[in-house]
Design a protein around this nucleic acid. Structure first.
Length: 467
RNA sequence: GGGGCCGUGGGGUAGCUUGGUUAUCCUACCGGCUUUGGGAGCCGGUGACUCCGGUUCAAAUCCGGGCGGCCCCA
């Protein structure tokens, strides 16, 4: 690594390529190539999504990438929110299309015409589906790997309910699901309610899951939206109630993206490269044989270890490349963020032991052969917990309650200030701090006076520079 | 939204002002021998001027545009 992590931009740009996650040289702005290692990590995250959402009663679906202009333009606010950032398909071959098509920037307008066909009666509800697809947005600002892309690897769950309250319950369930995901990815976060002018286009309200990158800028890594009947009306998603009358359904969505990987990279990595949470690491344990004078014996033993670790259910890799020295391999796997390294050499053979090295702390542990499998299991759990707890501590340090607009402006992290909740004061907060209100924390309140108008309030606003 | 810097082997640089067979280093890659407990050594080799247009006898170099990357400000 050429850049230290203090130079976060340089470090981040370097590590995503050096660790083998992506190749940014693809010649279209905001689009990169996922390389095998990066795609495996993303795949592990996706696999967990499939597992947990299925457990919560969602079914996986897959909708087309293209949406006709006529469907796209049914919900007024939604159009206004997205029309300046969609890619258009205007031609088939050389012929102009009668009905132009968009590349989905999100899938409401692709799904909801179909939902209106699928849903007839209350017995069809709730409908809970999700898909993992790529979406496209014509970003004009500078793009950044995983964080702001024109093609985005995207997860979206869509639900349809009979009543607003049932939709509200769904959002509570979404939060419950998110908490498990956050633990799996070892990501610290705060859930905020987005300001009214900042909600998803077409939503009644939006909740954002925010984390903080080492630069002090916030990153929105998941969203929950309450749509109420805002989409069901224009798309005609109605159901027949028990009493024989029709009613428009209430809907929600839960969205996440490759930004999660960006957060993992940024939050856990260090000067040596990535550090992956064991729960999603494609390789949890890498065996580096140090062959020395006993090449045959060491390699033979390495293979035995490999099989034992694999049989214990861990993702293990044996690095038996003989054109690289052990030192080279150490650096290489550290760069790739493998949580645990197992070294075995002549000395270990003699002492009937192996050496385990933690990626998160660098600690080296010699352990007897009889105990090493248990130790691997324990260390991986420790690393998972340690990554989360130290990231949480860092995040807490970056959020500070402030009583004045000036303090909020000069603070490099997230300033938490009292806000009366009015749009007028909110806009002024943003103007005077040169930052954004990323939202009001759901579970945090504090009595005080609005930093603009002085009105008493217990509402807080998180003020920060978002990505 | 505004401003700036930049694009040369896989990676990093020099060459550009003043047009004339490009070059260099670490690194990467290929072959060979020796190596292996924190980025191995030696020898030999492969490999590039972002694209389009213009000016010119001649363009990496000058001019225009596109595409792409990065930084700063709002």
């Amino acid at each position: 690594m050429e850049f230290p992590k203090e130079n976060f931009s340089g470090w981040y740009n370097e590590v995503v390529e050096a660790a083998g996650l992506v190749d940014k040289r693809y010649p279209v702005k905001g689009m990169h190539v996922w390389r095998p290692y990066g795609w495996k990590i993303m795949g592990n995250i996706d696999s967990y999504f499939r597992k947990i959402f299925t457990e919560y009663g969602h079914d996986e679906v897959n909708f087309p990438l293209l949406v006709p202009e006529t469907e796209f333009k049914k919900e007024a606010e939604h159009i206004r929110g997205f029309e300046d950032e969609v890619f258009w398909v205007t031609h088939g071959g050389l012929d102009p299309l009668d009905v132009k098509l968009i590349l989905r920037p999100t899938s409401e307008t692709a799904m909801y015409p179909m939902f209106s066909l699928w849903i007839r009666s209350h017995a069809d509800l709730p409908l809970k589906v999700f898909q993992i697809v790529n979406i496209f947005r014509y970003e004009t600002k500078q793009t950044r790997t995983f964080i702001r892309m024109r093609e985005v690897h995207f997860f979206e769950a869509h639900t349809v309910h009979r009543t607003y309250d049932e939709a509200e319950e769904q959002i509570q369930e979404d939060i419950e699901i998110w908490k498990k995901i956050a633990k799996k990815l070892a990501l610290p976060y705060r859930i905020v309610k987005k300001a009214d002018w900042d909600k998803f286009p077409g939503a009644v309200y939006s909740l954002g899951v925010e984390t903080i990158m080492p630069s002090g800028r916030t990153l929105q890594i998941a969203t929950f939206h309450q749509y109420g009947q805002n989409f069901s009306r224009p798309y005609g998603i109605r159901y027949l109630k028990e009493d024989g009358t029709h009613e428009y359904a209430h809907q929600t969505t839960f969205g996440m993206s490759e930004r999660l990987l960006g957060a993992i990279v940024g939050i856990h990595g260090d000067d040596r490269g990535l550090i992956l949470p064991p729960e999603i690491a494609p390789i949890q344990v890498v065996i580096v044989p140090i062959v020395g004078s006993k090449k045959e014996r060491v390699l033979e033993e390495s293979k035995v270890l490999y099989q034992e670790i694999k049989d214990s259910g861990f993702n293990v890799h044996l690095d038996d490349r003989d054109n690289y020295t052990p030192g080279y391999k150490f650096y290489d796997w550290e760069l790739k963020g493998v949580p645990l390294r197992l070294e075995i050499g002549p000395r270990d053979l003699e002492n009937n032991q192996v050496v385990l090295v933690r990626r998160d702390t660098g600690e080296k542990i010699s352990v007897k052969r009889e105990e090493y499998l248990d130790m691997i299991s324990k260390l991986l759990e420790d690393i998972q917990k340690n990554l989360l707890s130290r990231a949480e501590a860092e995040m807490n340090d970056k959020i500070k309650y402030m009583e004045s607009i000036e303090d909020a402006k000069s603070f490099s992290g997230v300033a938490s200030v009292n806000w009366c909740g009015s749009e007028e004061c909110g806009r002024l907060i943003e103007e005077k701090t040169d930052k954004k209100i990323i939202g009001s924390p759901l579970d945090e309140h504090r009595p005080g006076r609005c930093v603009i108008c002085g009105k008493e309030t217990n509402i807080l606003a998180f003020v920060a520079k978002p990505y």
